[in-house]
């Protein structure tokens, strides 16, 4: 089966800075890929190139077979994207905003109404539909962003920190929603919450300074911690791969620096 997202040799340079420096990976249907890395590692920049917002300095991205650089509209129509911070037009109501998105996505009439109702119920927005988005709480704002991203039931879903700023209940609901959708879709999401990877993801990629330092299952990720680390094992591995030598590839790396301890 062909990959739904295919990234090859992706690079983005901002002046002298290589924010993304040779990233390649595939995401298949049914996969929920957790994209991890310290602040400034290049997660958002990678996602912006996958979704066609930024053009890469080098490398290619294909989404469902469409080259993002040469056929951006085709690629954008098969993907749903929740940008970092869930931007939305502040003076529109949630309902007007979703109607705008539905129009742009090419839905009309009863089909449009059905799509909006579906996204609204999945994101649990019923109570705030008629409120201007600028008056919504952070959590609801993010759900509007989520509803916008899933409105057209896209085969590829890209979410930049979808649970950031949500309370524990909302986090739980959003994770359940993502899990429900995951069978039919290829999902790429970034997060700083390592438990989320365990709870949600079928695979994790850690990037550091623009390069992939780990690519594998959450179990393999956790297994990299030595047996004597009993608490926060994922934290331990995260620190060891991102504060250690970034040149060392995850697959090749088998010894973590002794200086990073297992303390919480």
């Amino acid at each position: 089966m062909a990959a739904m997202i295919e990234i090859r040799g992706l690079e983005k340079h901002f002046g002298p800075l290589r924010a993304v420096d040779g990233v390649s990976f595939d995401v298949h249907r049914g996969e929920v890929l957790g994209f991890l890395g310290p602040n400034g590692a290049g997660k958002s920049t990678t996602m912006k190139m996958v979704t066609g917002f930024l053009s890469p300095s080098a490398g290619t991205v294909h989404v469902c077979g469409h080259d993002v650089a040469s056929d951006p509209v085709a690629a954008k129509s098969v993907l749903g994207y929740l940008p970092e911070g869930a931007p939305a037009y502040p003076d529109m109501t949630a309902e007007a905003f979703l109607r705008f998105i539905a129009d742009i996505r090419g839905f009309s009439g009863s089909e449009r109404a059905r799509r909006i109702a579906d996204a609204v119920s999945k994101a649990r927005l019923e109570g705030v539909l008629h409120q201007p988005i600028e008056t919504l709480s952070k959590g609801y704002k993010r759900r509007v962003g989520l509803a916008q991203a899933i409105l057209h039931d896209p085969p590829v879903l890209i979410m930049d920190e979808p649970t950031d700023g949500l309370d524990p209940n909302q986090k739980h609901e959003v994770r359940a929603l993502i899990r429900d959708m995951s069978k039919e879709k290829a999902i790429l999401l970034s997060t700083h919450i390592l438990e989320e990877v365990e709870a949600l993801c079928t695979r994790a990629i850690i990037i550091n300074k623009g390069r992939i330092v780990f690519d594998g299952t959450p179990e393999a990720f956790e297994a990299k911690a030595p047996a004597d680390v009993t608490k926060n094992r994922m934290d331990w591995v995260f620190r060891s791969v991102t504060t250690g030598d970034a040149e060392t590839n995850g697959a090749a790396q088998n010894s973590a620096p002794a200086t990073v301890g297992g303390d919480a």
Binding site: A74, G85, A88, I104, R105
Partner: peptide
Amino acid sequence: RSGTIELLMTLPVT
């Protein structure tokens, strides 16, 4: 300023 340009430019519009 509000970042909606990222939303707009990743919708299927030119």
